[in-house]
Design a protein around this nucleic acid. Structure first.
Lengths: 341, 341
DNA sequence: CTGAAAGCGCTTACAG
DNA sequence: CTGAAAGCGCTTACAG
């Protein structure tokens, strides 16, 4: 295990100079830097992260917290963030809450986190007041991605969930639907954050704009999963009269709804139209109409925003307004005018 | 930032004793341990990871390397591994190769990795001879998940890809199909490892067993993605006569094939049967028959196998045989007898 | 531009 | 069972 002393000896300089040269600090002459770089290369030397971290006080690591890495939105955000983080020389510690309430508490309440990472990226992570207070005490820079809990002083990246839901519902209205159901994210689902509230708000606003009265019996809560969408749709088919169209709060829920419809012997879109939000990789495969959101872009921008204060040394953000990325209606084959129109 | 000295002072013992008590070493009297734990709790103290790592020589971190976290299999493996790793108190550093050849080289060739983590989990990571040699020099314990490159001395967890492919193909043969195409993983695709070769081998073996001659024109290579399956199916529809059934090497490819068939105006399974491997979350939604493999179980077992030598201090494995997990045929609605039978 | 020395906050032999 | 002291391998003022 070659250490900094070995490089110093070979280059004929002090360890301090090796340290400076290797990190690209400006206060090293060109000739010296050359010799140090050559010596380091010859010995295959890289500084020990543990030692650098202890001495330097920076971990060059970022914690990324997601509800479930297996869902389309979260894995896409993480993939984009990972690339930006590693490109900048930062390690990415992954925390997958996995629906386990205990994990979240352990994560945020551990006094450990602030000795372990330089910054925190919370993706759709539900926070209670106590959590937010705890995060404040960590005194770490951070960013939140996706609607939901805000942390005072942290920037956030997201879409406009109300507008996206409005677009989806508006599309169904424009096709002539009047009995439009909504499969809403479950507030009891700790992974849902407040996204589901915003999307329901958009749904209700679109109905109101069109002068269509909202039927509360067409509003069903479900988990943000395929199974959740499936169960919700089964439930909705018991309503009298049943809806002619369904707006699901995510593509995964929408696909679950499509599965339930097929099992019930109903055709999409001839009998029932379905639309979601996301533009999941598989939306094209099942012909699902949706409102696309840029997941990778949210992950990339979040990582870059997080890195900025770390690199310029201020260590904190300038408290900018939330960045709102655009969404876009994608019409495929799951939406059509209502039967008999 | 409370340090170990603060705890020592409050508890009235030396820092060495605090260190021992907090880590649960046996050589501490019950009374002393009590006082130390209380002092630490009162001060909200946790040891600084950087300092522990430097002094102790262990990082309590594991690197998990996947080709693409956005794919079903990999995100499922990572989710299960994350839970096991964090449960044991280990950090998980995520490396997503993302199809970038440079990343893989940087990852493995960096002399950094062995100062950064205690162990390595390679999930379907393609390795060339030079990579394997480099890993040998890292002298880290590790494990490989999913078929593909083996590392000498490392255990591996996987399914029997040949058998799984045989099962899938056998199902189509039993239904009466004789013109069975295979959408094969692309060898040029660096993410494919050798999984695709094993699956093709199983396909060919099943045909041979049934006395059905293999038509090389029904064997198309594609990326392990939805788009890859889509393009391959489009290609296959140009064959004369076209296949009556398709075995795709993954569910994502199979779903891509289903999309291409729908776009070509063909019905599944009435015109063409489709089967995959995986049992992707969405396989049920699209009614895809498949050979299920236990992805989460592979991730969980891999993490546990990795932790074992780290905890008992030997730091290396006993070179056990590969663990082969069972697969299972799941028949849904995408497979049926050939047209006109 | 460069070096000597202190210090980062722990863990680990070594004694007792 | 416990402590004093050295040491892990860097970085950072401080001098020059």
């Amino acid at each position: 295990m070659t250490r900094i002393d070995d490089v110093a000896r070979l280059a004929g300089v002090s360890t301090a100079t090796v340290s400076r040269a290797l990190r690209g600090l400006p206060t090293v002459s060109d000739g010296t830097r050359q010799r140090v770089l050559e010596a380091a290369a010859r010995l295959g030397y890289t500084a020990s992260p543990s030692a650098s971290r202890l001495a330097g006080g920076k971990t060059r690591s970022v914690a990324v917290v997601v509800p479930r890495i297996t869902r389309w939105f979260f894995s896409t955000v993480v993939e984009a963030a990972e690339e930006a983080l590693h490109h900048a020389g930062y390690d990415l510690l992954l925390y997958n809450l996995g629906g386990r309430e205990r994990t979240r508490q352990r994560l945020l309440h551990t006094t450990n986190l602030h000795k372990r990472v330089d910054a925190l990226m919370l993706v759709a992570t539900p926070l209670q007041a106590a959590d937010v207070a705890m995060i404040g005490k960590l005194a770490l820079p951070g960013i939140t991605v996706s609607s939901g809990t805000d942390v005072p002083g942290w920037p956030s990246i997201r879409i406009d969930d109300v507008a996206a839901a409005r677009t989806a519902t508006g599309h169904l209205l424009a096709l002539g639907h009047r009995r439009i159901a909504h499969i809403c994210g479950d507030g009891a689902d700790e992974l849902a954050v407040s996204t589901h509230l915003d999307r329901r708000r958009g749904y209700l606003a679109a109905l109101a704009d069109a002068g269509v009265p909202a039927d509360p019996r067409l509003n069903v809560e479900a988990e943000f999963t395929i199974g959740g969408g499936e169960r919700a749709m089964t439930e909705l088919l018991r309503r009298e009269p049943p809806p002619t169209a369904v707006f699901a709060a995510s593509d995964e829920m929408a696909m679950g709804a499509m599965a339930a419809l097929r099992q019930a012997g109903l055709r999409v879109p001839q009998d029932v139209s379905v639309i979601g939000i996301d533009d999941h990789d598989l939306a094209g495969v099942v012909g699902l109409s949706t409102v696309a959101q840029p997941a990778a872009e949210q992950g990339r921008l979040a990582a870059l925003a997080l890195l900025r204060p770390l690199r310029d040394g201020t260590g904190h953000h300038d408290g900018a307004d939330p960045v709102i990325l655009p969404t876009r209606l994608v019409v495929r084959e799951s939406t059509a005018p209502p039967p008999g129109s």
